[in-house]
């Protein structure tokens, strides 16, 4: 009886997952199909699920009408810088909170953590005023990068990961005449590689997909990221579905490739801190 009920449960679970997968994949598939066929075919009353008259013309139009290469480069640059700054600072802070004793460490950590409770919308306007009016940094890479150069969420993630590393290694390194930064650099960082990889991938994906802040802080076409540029293109060319789909594909494809090639790190990221060891 037990085996039978287990089989039924597995069948139901599999059916639900298949339905869910289809619901998730269809928009992506539709986007890819739309990007390689004529706009009229995409907009037709009974659209076909297979591309009619396969063509890369929508991509040509998208790249011809926009500064897409520049936007892609901007996105790549900003995401890369944010990944580096987050990995570096979050691992340092995470290590300090997890392993070093200093007065008020718990209090500081909880204050930092409590800032995660404040919705981003609440701080958006003060942040905008700070960046544009006070620091006079509007419409620049610095303006896009600075607010998320290190995030509390990433510090928390790293603290959880670092906590699982044995403290005796730090003590051993200290006795082995290693400097405090040497301990971090030569002992802790190599051991934290899986955690750092997860952090890097999550940060890169989040930065690549970030829309609202770059949209708010940039004015000029050449400072836009791919997501912001795409939005402006959609407003301007609302009927050219083919080119819109091509743009959306260009924006999404790097992330899809990244996801599929580094899938195991994504799964690892979900369980960080859940199981010690």
């Amino acid at each position: 009886m037990k085996t039978r009920s287990k089989t039924i449960f597995l069948l139901i679970a599999a059916a639900c997952l298949i339905v869910w997968s289809i619901v998730t994949i269809i928009p992506l598939y539709w986007m890819l199909v739309g990007s390689v066929q004529d706009s009229a075919a995409t907009a037709s009353f009974r659209p076909s699920m297979l591309p009619e008259a396969f063509s890369f013309a929508p991509y040509e139009r998208f790249f011809a009408k926009t500064a897409a290469w520049r936007w892609l480069l901007n996105s790549l640059f900003i995401s890369s810088v944010l990944t580096i700054t987050n990995v570096f600072f979050a691992s340092l802070a995470g290590y300090a909170f997890a392993k070093l004793k200093f007065p008020g460490s718990n209090a500081i950590f909880w204050v930092l953590l409590s800032t995660m409770m404040i919705p981003a919308q609440v701080t958006l306007i003060p942040l905008y005023i700070l960046i544009v009016n006070v620091f006079n940094l509007g419409d620049s890479y610095t303006a896009i990068i600075l607010p998320t150069a290190i995030t509390v969420g990433n510090i928390f993630l790293m603290k959880q990961y670092m906590s699982s590393l044995p403290t005796s290694l730090i003590h051993a390194a200290r006795i082995d005449a290693c400097s405090e930064f040497g301990i971090f650099w030569k002992v802790i960082l190599p051991l934290a590689k899986p955690g750092l990889a997860v952090l890097a991938i999550f940060t890169f994906v989040a930065s690549w997909n970030e829309f609202f802040w770059p949209f708010l802080i940039t004015n000029s076409t050449e400072m836009r990221t791919i997501q912001v540029g795409l939005a402006s293109f959609v407003f301007a060319e609302s009927t050219d579905f083919g080119a819109i789909m091509a743009g959306a594909s260009v924006g999404a494809l790097p992330m899809l490739i990244l996801f599929f090639s580094l899938q195991r790190y994504f799964l690892q990221g979900i369980t960080i801190g859940a199981v010690k060891g």
Partner: peptide, 11 residues
């Protein structure tokens, strides 16, 4: 010092 859990650098 020799530690209870050896504390060898795994990498």
């Amino acid at each position: 010092m020799v530690f209870q859990d050896y504390a060898l650098y795994p990498h």
